[in-house]
Design a protein around this nucleic acid. Structure first.
Lengths: 225, 225
DNA sequence: GTCTATAACCGGATAGAC
DNA sequence: GTCTATCCGGTTATAGAC
């Protein structure tokens, strides 16, 4: 089962490769399924045998981008020590990795908005990808001495924060995402200060309430659906 | 110019009316432009003469929903006095108004994600609608005694908060949006506490930094594009 | 039962005649 | 301003081939 690679396996890979190449060259909308099929050397109907929709092909693309982000984060997480530097490094790595793909990031958001979309980060394949993204933030917290109860709730929160930054960047028409870079620098600073503030004993009641709400959110999150 | 209503004006209205009726009955995706045209008693091509795309018709729908929200907020803003009750009233009113239109709200998000979309709340017609939404939150703050510098930055922030709630609601499959209602109640409470905390003199440095970042965001916001 | 292909269908959008 | 005819591309139906 591992060796022989059922016949179609090769075909499937050819289709993915063709799609990714065309997506990169022409963008998602401009790439037609007919073009993908031709590039892969199969018929249109055959392409649909492997991928029931064009969006499903996009998922393969997002997986690649995610892999690239994880790779870009490795040196940061290995070398940087403070919460601020680690978070900053991960966020800037992300910006760098997605830089060539503004339009694609917009599509990911559209997926997030629609629970029925195969691109929704709360269902199926994409949910797994989201969890891996949160895992990245969990690793950001490693080696920092935050109270356990706070650290436990932070990864999904930081993931959401990251999505917010991406949303800003999608609309950012400054050269090289200059403004988004500044936003990241300033907001990371604020996030870190707020997290440390939250650890202050004087704010215990507010912290408890907030954590409880976050736990409720997680418990009933669409993530579990 | 006011009286005679240029010939097509009537036609245009018929098309909008037809579209809104069908959207409500069958949903957006299920409503075809051909059906809209037929319902309005015009040809397909003629419908496109007035509305260059189906999305443009959706805008008319969003305007109606917004009007309904403003109306639903009026009694709240007239009667309630504290920040908490006013904000809670406005948020619950929103939830109630959009209740029948979950799928449409998802579409609005998809618009927000794509700067090129005619539904983007940061451009043209829809930007105006967004500003009116922020205005609603500005009125929430009236009569509360918040520091001016904080109050000045809150409306766009609260608008964003509202969008977050809507996003949650889109994915909320509990009966009657029960979970979203609870989220609103808890999160409004937290928001109010945080705002009041931010007014604390001890947090002056953090507040100043945060406000400065928000001002920068506004200055370069896509809203101005 | 796995794979591939051809021929439609459907609906958003456009062209161009009147 | 209004229509008819058409394009275009995602998607589906279906018939065979391995």
């Amino acid at each position: 089962m591992a060796e022989p690679e059922r016949k179609g396996e090769r075909t499937k890979e050819r289709i993915v490769a063709a799609a990714l190449a065309l997506f990169r060259r022409d963008g998602y909308e401009a790439t037609t399924m007919r073009a993908v099929a031709e590039e892969a050397g199969v018929s249109l109907g055959n392409a649909y045998y492997y991928f029931a929709s064009k969006e499903l092909l996009l998922r393969a693309f997002y997986h690649e981008v995610h892999e690239a982000h994880v790779a870009a984060c490795a040196p940061v997480l290995a070398r940087k020590k403070g919460l601020r530097d680690r978070l900053l490094g991960v966020m800037l790595a992300r910006l760098q990795v997605i830089a060539p793909y503004r339009r694609f990031s917009a599509l990911m958001f559209q997926g997030a908005a629609d629970p029925k979309s195969p691109l929704s980060p709360f269902h199926g394949d994409m949910a797994q990808l989201r969890r891996e993204g949160e895992e990245l933030f969990a690793r950001v917290l490693e080696g920092t001495k935050l109270p356990k109860d706070i650290a436990a709730e932070l990864p999904p929160l930081l993931w959401t924060y990251g999505m917010g930054i991406v949303l800003y960047w999608i609309h950012d028409d400054s050269a090289d995402g200059e403004r988004t870079r500044r936003l990241i620098e300033h907001s990371v600073d604020l996030v870190v200060r707020c997290v440390k503030l939250a650890a202050n004993p004087l704010l215990r009641p507010l912290r408890q309430r907030t954590l409880q709400m976050l736990r409720d959110l997680r418990a009933f999150a669409p993530a579990e659906a």
